[in-house]
Design a binder for these strands. Structure first.
Length: 742
DNA sequence: TGGCAGAAAAAC
DNA sequence: TTTTTCTGCCAC
């Protein structure tokens, strides 16, 4: 039985050669590496293991044997290195492993990089240590104060307590507990680490739903009860109570013993969502986002893997958490561009979420007031079920929407807010309510011009205009981040005091408001606010709390927060973004304006939305003013059909560098600038590029640039008979069929 | 020909 | 991602 003392060669003779398993390591590698399983170590596919990699050690995942057994050995099995350690951690589920493989394949990313996203919690792979707890010893101190009585009383209600938990439960400070401990009232015992969040209680406070909400919630609950893969698009105007509707599906999944993931755009992960969840389920959901403290991050990861955490509310990266029994996925604000990750591994969390649901065989719910065109099309084609909530919940009325034709109501010279909007702001502030001015442009002015020679200050690297950021005193490039101090004289002709700021940014609108309404409390909300996201969150809370009269904000004010006193919303330059060649320009503008005007009037007060535009006849403006999303979608569908475009679609570009990675990055930058923002531009090294080309799913066009490398040329000649013989660096544009993920 | 920086390849 | 190896270039 005990073979450990025998020499390994003897054991080999007896039991055959050492077991070799594939291990996927977190590197840009397409396939797992092979490692030897040491005698006596138990591993299975999904096990998380520590392996040597070159001179260092990394955590990897034991992967599945490829179909048809291991490929012929490329390495001498005798030279393979052994696994160092198998972590005491639940293995990644088979679903999760299939998901990682699928995402890698679909996004053309090395599998190792995708698995890395699932392992983003260093040192969560070993169990959390048990902590020291207290249990009543039975000895009662002679001197008993009221506080001490209470502690002993409460302590009797459970086997064991953590020091702070007991103090909190008894409503005393921990010094009272410490004092009792010193007198021998407790034995110390080892207790398991506390959960990061309490278990949700699905019966905590059942929501009182309107008839429309019930009508939407029932089919969702039914699809959860039925189990199996399905996708439902839940479309409801702002304030229609979508969240409460999908909470019913969440409750149903929890009652069925499943874990639930609610994806939110990063910015929407605010206290208001947490609070609403708390009201319904009596506890917070576990949160997952990029600025989680490392310790919390590890505990959440671990407890999700163990199944102790039942609900996660997270940003897109939460999709790669190691759920063991995920049974429902909700993607809130499914149209939000923040779901698309555009560095390293390119993926769209909403679409990959649908894939996760398909692989796991459970329902997905996509919720939005302004769904993306692709989800609309998928719903229309019956790939997704479609539920609509047409009216607002309870007394909350939709705002009166009005287009302000800027040709008829021009602002004063040097100003940007029309008299119509100024008057409305005045009324609003006088009533003690709040006004929101929305302008999707950071900084003070998008262009600085020399009135003497006409020079426009441009970025040294990108030749785009530098944006004047007056609060920080710099001119900054919004493409590459290049910044320079604001010059006193023209850098071209040297003339002093002739530099003039052109066009509005939020800082400039704030200045205009301060001048027009010097007594009002004006607050500026922008993502580049000094003080970072923490300060921003505070400011948003302050606005919600009524501590401002006039709020000026970029698109970050469009979502998440509920501002009860906000009864006027003005879009300063609604046309912005319509003319930039982005194939999603109309869609994005519509979504943004619809959302931002929806900030008004959710509390029963009469409210208005004023949209400043130079083209009130534009279909997007007409759709916005009508308050009907339907109108926009129909219009857009007809437009695309007439233009011979697919109903929706994304364009990606792969850039194959023949020369150097650096050169490829340069090309990529150039292409990103030239291409509409929604295009994904991916850079591949020579080794990865051919792989991308031969994957059958894509159609591509070739654009041949200058360069040298023969290997790629030969490959391309052989692979793409119809392509012109490339002379070096190759740009490959790839149309990804956006429906192929189903 | 040794030394060096920057680029490319390898990591099992 | 980190570490090692390769390559071209220069000075000696």
């Amino acid at each position: 039985m005990n073979i450990e003392t025998k020499p390994p060669s003897f054991a080999d003779d007896l039991f055959g050669p050492a077991r070799i398993v594939p291990v996927l390591v977190p590197l840009p590698t397409e396939r797992p590496y092979s490692y030897v399983v040491p005698e006596g170590m138990q591993v299975e596919p999904g096990s998380i293991v520590q392996v040597p990699l070159g001179p260092r050690q990394v955590a990897g995942v034991v992967w599945d044997e490829p179909d048809g057994g291991p490929p012929e050995a490329t390495l001498d099995p005798k030279k393979l290195r052994p696994i160092v350690h198998a972590f005491d951690c639940p293995p990644l589920s088979a679903d999760m492993r299939r998901f990682v493989d699928w995402v890698a394949d679909y996004t053309l990313s090395p599998t190792g990089l995708v698995v890395r996203m699932a392992l983003r919690a260093p040192s969560a792979f070993d169990p959390e240590p048990w902590i020291e707890g207290l249990a009543l010893s039975g000895t009662r101190p002679t001197k008993l104060t009221a506080a001490r009585e209470r502690v002993l009383d409460v302590a009797g209600k459970s086997e064991s307590w953590s020091r702070s938990g007991l103090a909190k439960a008894a409503g005393v400070t921990s010094s009272v507990v410490d004092g009792l401990a010193k007198l021998g009232a407790f034995n110390t015992v080892r207790i398991p680490p506390p959960p990061v969040v309490a278990a949700p209680d699905t019966g905590h406070e059942r929501a009182r739903l309107s008839a429309a909400q019930v009508a939407a919630a029932e089919p969702l609950k039914a699809s959860v009860a039925a189990g199996g893969f399905s996708v439902t698009l839940l479309e409801g105007v702002t304030g229609s109570g979508k969240t409460e509707v999908y909470f019913e599906a969440v409750a149903a999944a929890l009652d069925a013993g499943k874990q639930v993931l609610i994806l939110l755009p990063e910015i929407a992960l605010t206290q208001s969502f947490i609070d609403r969840f708390g009201q319904r389920f009596g506890t917070e959901p576990a949160q997952w986002h990029s600025d989680l403290p490392p310790k919390t991050r590890e505990r959440v990861w671990r407890q999700v893997a163990e199944g102790r955490v039942r609900v996660v509310a997270g940003a897109r990266s939460a999709l790669f958490l190691p759920f063991r029994e995920l049974g429902l996925l909700v993607v809130d604000e499914e149209h939000d561009p923040a779901y698309k990750q555009e560095d390293r591994t390119f993926y769209h969390a909403r679409d990959m979420g649908v894939v996760r649901a398909r692989i796991g065989g459970f329902p997905a719910v996509l919720a939005s007031a302004t769904p993306s065109l692709e989800s609309r099309v998928n719903a229309k084609a019956s790939r997704y079920a479609h539920l609509k909530l047409a009216s607002r919940f309870r007394e909350a009325a939709l705002p009166d929407l009005e287009l302000v034709d800027m040709r008829n109501h021009p602002p004063e010279k040097g100003r940007f807010v029309s008299p119509v909007l100024i008057a409305a702001i005045r009324d609003t502030v006088l009533r003690g309510e709040q006004a929101l001015l929305f302008l999707n442009r950071r900084g003070y002015a998008p262009l600085t011009l020399c009135r003497s020679c006409g020079h426009r200050i441009q970025c040294a690297d990108c030749s785009t205009w530098l944006v004047d950021h007056r609060l920080r005193g710099v001119l900054q490039c919004h493409h590459c981040g290049f910044a320079r101090p604001r010059p006193q004289s023209c850098p071209e002709c040297g003339t002093f005091d002739h530099m003039v700021a052109c066009g509005p940014g939020v800082e400039r609108i704030a200045e205009e408001m301060l001048e027009t309404f010097p007594d009002a409390r004006t607050i500026l909300l922008s993502s580049d606010l000094v003080g970072g996201p923490k300060r921003l969150r505070r400011e948003l809370d302050a606005v919600a709390d009524g501590q401002a009269d006039i709020v000026i904000g970029t698109q970050l004010v469009a979502k998440g927060h509920h501002f009860p006193k906000m009864t006027l919303v003005g879009a300063v330059d609604a046309d912005l973004g319509l003319a930039n060649g982005d194939p999603r320009a109309a869609e994005r503008t519509f979504q943004l304006l619809h959302q931002v005007t929806g900030r008004a009037g959710r509390s029963g007060l009469a409210s208005r939305g004023l949209i400043q535009t130079f083209q009130p006849e534009h279909p997007v403006m007409q759709a916005i003013a009508s308050g009907s999303a339907e109108r926009f979608y129909e219009r857009e569908a007809a437009e695309r059909e007439r233009a011979g475009l697919p109903p929706f679609g994304r364009l990606a570009a792969l850039i194959v560098s023949a020369d150097t990675r650096r050169e490829a990055e340069d090309h990529a930058r150039a292409l990103r600038r030239a291409a509409p923002p929604d295009d994904a531009v991916e850079v591949l090294g020579p080794a990865e590029a051919p792989l991308a080309l031969v994957r059958g799913r894509h159609r591509f066009r070739l654009l041949v640039m200058g360069g040298r490398q023969a290997r790629i040329q030969a490959f391309l000649r052989a692979t793409l008979a119809e392509a012109p013989a490339p002379r070096g660096s190759v740009h490959v544009q790839v149309d990804i069929d956006p429906q192929s993920f189903l």
